[in-house]
Amino acid sequence: MNSKYMFSLAAVIVLFLLAYIGVAGIGLYGFFGIFIPYAAAFIFAVGVVYRVVDWAQSPVPFRIPSTCGQQKSLPWIKPASFDNPACNGTVLIRMILEIVLFRSLFRNMRFHFNKGNKFSYEWEKWLWLGALAFHWAFFVVVIRHLRFFTEPVPVCIQWLESLDSFFRLEFFADFVQVGLPGVFISGIVLLAAVIYLLLRRMLIPQVNYVSLAADYFPLFLIIAIAVSGIMMRYFTKVDIVGIKEFTMGLVTFHPKIPEGVGSVFYIHIFFVSVLLAYFPFSKLMHLAGIFMSPTRNLANNSRVKRHVNPWNYPVKVHTYEEYEDDFREKMIEAGLPVEKELTTNGG
C-alpha cells in the first residue's frame, strides 16, 4: 500500500461516484452531458495555449541540446547528424523521430550489480515498448472517435476503423459474447499498456520511489476511460445512433440530451472531460512540452554561430585607452611604457 497511488485511485473513484450519482441519482443530464464537456474543452484549449505562451517567454539564450553522438567536426569525422544535429533540418528530423518513435526512451538502461558487486548495464526496452504502444493506441482511439463528431464520416477515419478491427477477435461463452461489434485492437492495446505502465510504477521499487500522486492519477483516469468505453461497446451496450446524435449536437452547438442512454456513457464522458480539464495543469502537458524542449529542439551549433544572451545589459567599461589618458603623465614619470606619447598634445 502506498498513499500516493491510493490517493489517486480514491480521486478517480470519487469522480466516478460524482458522475454516477449526478446522472443516475439526481438526473443532472444537462450538466454532465453538455456543460462539463464544453467547459472541459475550453479549459483544455485555452490552458494549453496559456502554458505554451508562458513557456515561450523563458529565454533560451544558449544551445543546450542533449547530444547523443559525434558533433559535426572536421570533414573526415563522421557526425551523428540526428543525435547531434548541426542545423535546423536535422533538428526537425530528430524531433519527428523523438515524437513518433520515442528514441530517447529507447536508450533506457537498467543498472544493477552482476555477480557480487560488478556494476553492469542492461538493455531495458519494456518502458519504451509500453510507452509506444500506449501513446499510439491512444492516438488511434482518439482519431477513430472522430466518427462521432463528423457527418459524413471522412473516408480516412473509416479506413482506420477497418484497419483497427482487422483481427476479427471472437469469443463465446455462456456469460459473454465478443466478436460483434468488431473488436478494435487499439482499445485493448491501450488498456493493456496503461495497466503495464501503472504496474511498473507500483512494483519496481526505484520507479515507485520517484512516483507521485500526479503520476498515478492520469493512469487511473485513463484506465477508467478505457474500461468504461470497452464496457459500452462490448458489454452493457448503448444506442450508438442516439450517442452520435448527441455528439453531433455538441459540435454543431445544438446540444441535445439523448434519450435512453445509460449512465455508463455519462461516466465515460465525465472521465474524458476531467482528463481534458486536468491536462493544462498537469504533467500531461508533455504533449506540448516535447515541442518546447530546448534539449531536443536546438541545433548544436555553438562553435559555428555566436549566441548572445538577450538579457545582457550595457556594462559601463573603462578601456585601457581611457585609463592611459587619465594617468599618462604619471606613467611616463614612473618610466612605464605608454601607447601614445605625451608630446602629441601641445597642452
Binding site: F44, A45, L146, F149, E151, M248, V251, T252
Partner: peptide, 16 residues
C-alpha cells in the same frame, strides 16, 4: 482542437 467544429460548420446532421 477546432477541427470537429469547423468540419460541421453550418451543417445540420439529423439522426437518420
Amino acid at each position: 482542437v477546432l477541427s470537429p467544429f469547423l468540419y460541421n460548420l453550418g451543417k445540420a446532421a439529423p439522426a437518420p
